[in-house]
Nucleic acid binder design. Sequence first.
DNA 1: AATGCAAATGATAATTGTTCTTATTTGTTG
DNA 2: CAACAAATAAGAACAATTATCATTTGCATT
Lengths: 140, 140
Amino acid sequence: MHQPDHLKNAGLKTTLPRLKVLSLFESGRERHMSAEDVYKQLLSTGDDVGLNTVYRVLTQFEQAGLLVRHYFEGGKSVFELNHGTHHDHIVCLQCGHVEEFYDASIEARQEIVAAERGFTIREHSLYIYADCNKMPCPNK
Amino acid sequence: MHQPDHLKNAGLKTTLPRLKVLSLFESGRERHMSAEDVYKQLLSTGDDVGLNTVYRVLTQFEQAGLLVRHYFEGGKSVFELNHGTHHDHIVCLQCGHVEEFYDASIEARQEIVAAERGFTIREHSLYIYADCNKMPCPNK
DNA sequence: AATGCAAATGATAATTGTTCTTATTTGTTG
DNA sequence: CAACAAATAAGAACAATTATCATTTGCATT
Ligand SMILES: [Mn+2]
Ligand SMILES: [Mn+2]
Ligand SMILES: [Zn+2]
Ligand SMILES: [Zn+2]
């Protein structure tokens, strides 16, 4: 799916830090990660990459369309692999567990809401904050 | 609507800084303002209030239910008067103009999405980023 | 394989938005 | 109007992110 040549295609040199970050996302260990998350994961496997390089690479990957950036409540950006299709998120306020969903009816209504006001949608973000009601919460 | 006694009711002393911040929101000059926005508006009318006091007062007003806080894309919190009813936002990417909307069908679908996954919704945020298509864009 | 150079990295410093600390001031109450 | 708790303001501290720049690395060419 995302091979090293995705980097070349995006005009990015195939460097060690970039490969490390990309394979961390591809490992599937965690789908949604902040810069700090990525930094710490790489530290924990000895694949050290400077924190500012992580930030730079994440931004480049976002621009190259390899990653998608989200602004979850709490101020820090979170990234995930871009698998082409849009989806929204429901986040457990207790444990941080994130589930993804796509609801065609919500998507359609947004278009109508925008059109009624003369707007042309560029993007949108919908986050539902909730309790997952699992015992115990899966992540924490 | 929001009189000074709203402060007392919330257990907050009726101080000059609080009155200044509250009346700025009530003036209707701008509905959605960040701490920095409030700070600068007050400076511009000579009603100086320290920036940290602005932050503190905004947080207190949020807790007292006088204001609602939003996390717009870009990292900074934005506040608006709480007029009791929930609404979502459509933001023009060109001029920053914000319009509010409420769509019962979107709200209802969110409940279904959450329920299907066993979640109980606490809150949600939906921002549509768009072009307002006005010539010129109203705010800038 | 060695060379050359643009591009990328990492150490460090700077910025931005926000919160904390604490001495001074202010609002309320007797 | 005195007393005292609560609130303010100045400044430091913090957290997330971005910028600067000397050194290193990927990679195309010899
Ligand atoms: Mn996702
Ligand atoms: Mn609003
Ligand atoms: Zn949970
Ligand atoms: Zn506009």
